[in-house]
């Protein structure tokens, strides 16, 4: 049993390349759609993790109108250092590599996503 668990955990938080981009596999899903995070290295100081396009669809569906929900989404995400991109319907965290580890950024984004994706209609 532990062998099977180990095999599954080996893929959790695992980075993989997808058509030239880097994604981090979280095993998190919303209604069956995977919520993996895309990683961008902006320069040698800053990096960014962003939720996928299906997150915007989910937010539009669950809130009815994410523009109306925007201030609540921002307030829920802010303590984690996570921001809401209202144009793309995505949550993202931008961090300095020498101040925050990638692992910490993943957890912060995952925690913010956990709260935001349980919002109801606005």
């Amino acid at each position: 049993m532990l062998k099977e668990i180990r095999e599954q955990l080996d893929t959790m938080f695992c980075a993989y390349e997808d058509r030239g981009a880097l994604d981090v596999w979280t095993h998190m899903t919303i209604e069956g759609d995977p919520i993996n995070f895309r990683f961008y290295q902006e320069d040698n100081k800053y990096a960014r993790l962003v939720t996928p396009p299906c997150f915007s669809e989910w937010m539009a569906y669950s809130t009815g109108c994410w523009s109306r929900a925007a201030s609540t989404i921002e307030a829920l995400a802010e303590p984690y250092g996570v921001s809401w991109d209202n144009e793309n319907g995505a949550l993202y965290i931008r961090f300095r590599r020498n101040e925050m580890s990638v692992a910490e950024a993943i957890m912060r984004l995952q925690q913010a996503v956990s709260l935001v994706c349980e919002l109801g209609p606005f």
Binding site: I5, L9, F13, L22, S101, A103, M107, Q111
Partner: peptide, 27 residues
């Protein structure tokens, strides 16, 4: 990137259990 993640999300395998150490933000 996997190496960077592995430095902060540790998985430790013992014969009788598996431990995961995750950096949670708790306020």
């Amino acid at each position: 990137l996997n190496e960077a993640i592995g430095q902060g999300i540790r998985k430790v395998y013992y014969p009788d259990r598996i431990e995961l150490y995750l950096p949670f933000f708790i306020g």
